Simulated scan of single mutants.
Amino acid sequence: MFMRIDHIGIACRDLEEKIAFFSETFELTVVAREVNEEQGVKEAMLHIADGEGGGSYIQLLEPLSEDSPVGKFLAKRGEGVHHVAFGVRDVTETMAKINEKGVRLLDQHPRHGSMGSEIAFLHPKDVGGMLTELVQAAKR
């Protein structure tokens, strides 16, 4: 069902500061930046490596407001891992399979994700407390 870990989402208060840290410390390269109004974040994707089915990344997330999901996360838990995203071949098919197994979906339909991907989130209470994202990479 899962092809790889697509990315680890990390909530941060200062996107530029975290980009500098990850770039300098771990020699990662920013491959995409965008503002996602729907999700209330500014984000940067830093490339780790390529593998079967696509690349793996660190996704840095700065909230656009304190009342956005990432803003609320930062207020409650501080900076750190926000979610884990798994690469899948077909996000719609994977959502259906997972839902049939009793895991609740936070999204009923895929939505726009980073770098043109299609994404959906699973309910953290059904996945051991971990916010889990499914990612179907954009066709290249």
Rank of each mutant, 00 (worst) to 15 (best):
E133S: 09
K97P: 02
R104T: 09
E27I: 01
V103R: 03
I119H: 01
P69I: 07
V127Y: 00
A120W: 00
V81S: 05
A44F: 10
S117K: 01
I5G: 08
L131K: 11
D107S: 09
Q59I: 04
G53P: 13
S114D: 07
G9V: 04
N99D: 11
V127R: 06
T94Y: 01
G55W: 07
L74K: 05
Q59P: 02
D50W: 04
T94V: 10
F26A: 12
V84N: 03
T92D: 10
K139M: 02
H123Y: 06
P63E: 12
G71D: 09
E27W: 00
L74D: 01
P110F: 02
R104Q: 13
A32E: 15
L28Q: 09
P69G: 12
C12G: 02
R33E: 15
E133M: 10
K18S: 08
M115V: 06
A32D: 15
R33Y: 10
F2G: 12
E118V: 03
D50L: 05
K72W: 13
V31Y: 06
T94M: 13
Q108C: 03
A75F: 03
S65I: 06
P69D: 12
I10D: 09
V41F: 03
R77N: 14
I10F: 01
I48G: 11
D107I: 01
T94L: 03
A120D: 02
P69N: 11
M130A: 14
